[in-house]
Nucleic acid binder design. Structure first.
Lengths: 338, 338
DNA sequence: CTGAAAGCGCTAACAA
DNA sequence: TTGTTAGCGCTTTCAG
């Protein structure tokens, strides 16, 4: 049977509360001898505290829950780095992280509610919805009394999100500073996420401030068209006399597409074409050392979200200002002065 | 304050156990009237059961824990599909999933133990270690009394893993059946995972059974060499008179590399070069509709692992036979008869 | 510095 | 069909 405090108390000839205090480091006012004895016995018996009991007594579960939008797509909606940040931060504050997904299909179901929202089993909620959040869901969560922080989503309060607009602007400014004038923005067809328009807004703003005209918007279609047509559709842009000398790419996929395109067009990077991309980390493409990257600060975002949520749990009625996380530039080998 | 069963009992003029029984569907022997009344009041007060209390009483937390090896690398060691499978399965059985990571750096630390192992807060353990598992860790977990199932790892019992050898063999056999004779195996430099050697063993076996000589092993180096040298290093293989007409690729990265290489060498797919890759899902590369893929059955693996663990929790002393999960072939547009 | 008593919210066993 | 009693393991008073 599992070892309990009571057993340790009996074995060491002390009372239950004494053992409890020592094992949970409450009050240093204990004889060194008793202390040692208790710890020794606990070790011998392989004691591990029953967190359910502790939680019930203290009114805190010691758990944060991540409510994650549909993971039924192949592409990871829960980026590894974000998860890493959440895990590191929760571990740091001695909390557990439980993950709950709301399948996209059920997102609009009226009746559906994930287990985590039907019960008291976490102290707070981290919400990472990449898709648009149904209004009903937002209200549900707000009426739910559980402290919550939004990740990757702009709300009026209690949210943490990457500063995409500023990121797009900074990427473009870097290229401008290198002397580039014809700078394009490249993205993938059908990206519904607000980050695409936000980065593009930043790009537009930088171009306008520099009094350069906004250049070719390159939109890559996903692969389900024939090899020839796809390549030819964009290849002219890179070969024309007004071809861009630099491109800001929306994501890793767009970077890959751009490189592929450049290879096919016989345009070499960075000699004739500079590239900055929004990637998870300085991406090593084939034949390329590393991409100049605006790194999405997922790790930091995870940490910030956890810290904000902990604050929220401690002071539920104070709402936190939205926290934009700046992108970090990491140099690679894909940009050069014009 | 949070609504409790007691409050519902008072409001509805019934006793606490009656309310408890109705709310947790125990025993159908209740008057319809009382039933309705209780449910009504519960709804009004927004009742949600306190899982800590329930867990303490029942000796079950209703939680499975995923112990995950270091997430400090950029590459996701927790594939989205696996997580999706685990989440779907735990939701199906009305269980929570908590995720705990052991940072690679601390993997060998003697003193280090993740919170989840220091406490009683889960009913069972799902272990997903991609790196080699230190022996000490295995023993620790085995001595830990908590029912455990290994994912992606071959143990003597209680484990679920993809059948890489058979997968490699099947991929190769498909190409042989298409009439190919010069078939290569392509992988990335420095892959430490056993899946590489297992798939390769399967490839070797298929080739030997067909009495074909094992062909060119193509090893792509990661991008940190100049574009020229990398391409040239492998390009000769595809241009030579004994060039392979088909390639089995270890992973998505190797597929990308192969396509890039083929593009550069002027070899078209699938006309002159067939490709089968081990990818997460039929990968849409640029200019390619979809890769012929041996799909890693991560979703199923997640489900199987959860089912096995639940069995293990119910009957801790019965050990489950290792469960190899077969790969699933999904056709694309990158293979053709010779 | 330590112990006795009480109770967190829930459910299982038994009694009515 | 419902109520009474008891107790899961732990921590928090408060008393000694």
């Amino acid at each position: 049977m599992r070892t309990t405090i009571k057993q340790i108390a009996e074995r060491s000839g002390l009372s239950v509360p004494t053992v409890s205090r020592i094992l949970s480091n409450k009050g240093e006012s204990h004889l060194l001898a008793t202390r040692e004895r208790v710890l020794q016995v606990a070790r011998e018996l392989g004691y591990r505290p029953n967190m359910s009991a502790r939680a019930m007594r203290q009114g805190r579960t010691g758990t944060l829950a991540l409510l994650q939008s549909g993971t039924d797509q192949a592409r990871s909606l829960l980026p590894a780095e974000l998860l890493a940040g959440l895990l590191a931060a929760t571990a740091e504050y001695d909390l557990h992280l439980t993950v709950a997904a709301v399948p996209d299909a059920r997102l609009t179901d009226q009746g559906f509610m994930p287990k985590i929202l039907r019960e008291w089993s976490a102290d707070g909620l981290l919400i990472n919805y990449n898709a648009d959040i149904p209004k009903a869901m937002i209200e549900l969560i707000q009426s739910h009394e559980l402290p919550a922080v939004w990740i990757n989503s702009m709300q009026s309060a209690d949210c943490v999100y990457p500063d995409d607009e500023r990121g797009g602007q900074e990427a473009t400014e870097r290229l401008l500073q290198l002397g580039h004038e014809r700078i394009a923005y490249a993205t993938m067809e059908g990206v519904g996420h607000y980050s695409d328009s936000a980065r593009r807004r930043g790009y537009d703003a930088a171009m306008q401030r520099a009094r350069k005209s906004v250049q070719h918007l390159i939109v890559f279609r996903h692969g389900n068209v024939g090899q020839e047509s796809l390549t030819n559709a964009n290849i002219e842009i890179l070969k024309g006399s007004q071809a861009p000398t630099a491109i800001v790419c929306y994501n890793t996929q767009a970077v890959q597409a751009t490189i592929h395109l450049a290879t096919a067009a016989g345009v070499s990077t960075p000699r004739a074409l500079s590239i900055i991309g929004f990637c998870v980390s300085p991406y090593e493409a084939l034949g390329i050392r590393a991409i100049d990257t605006m790194v999405l600060p997922e790790l930091e975002m995870g940490w910030s979200a956890v810290r904000m949520l902990i604050r929220k749990i401690e002071e539920p009625h104070i709402s936190n200002a939205p926290l934009p996380i700046p992108y970090r530039f990491e140099g690679g080998w894909t940009t050069a002065p014009l």
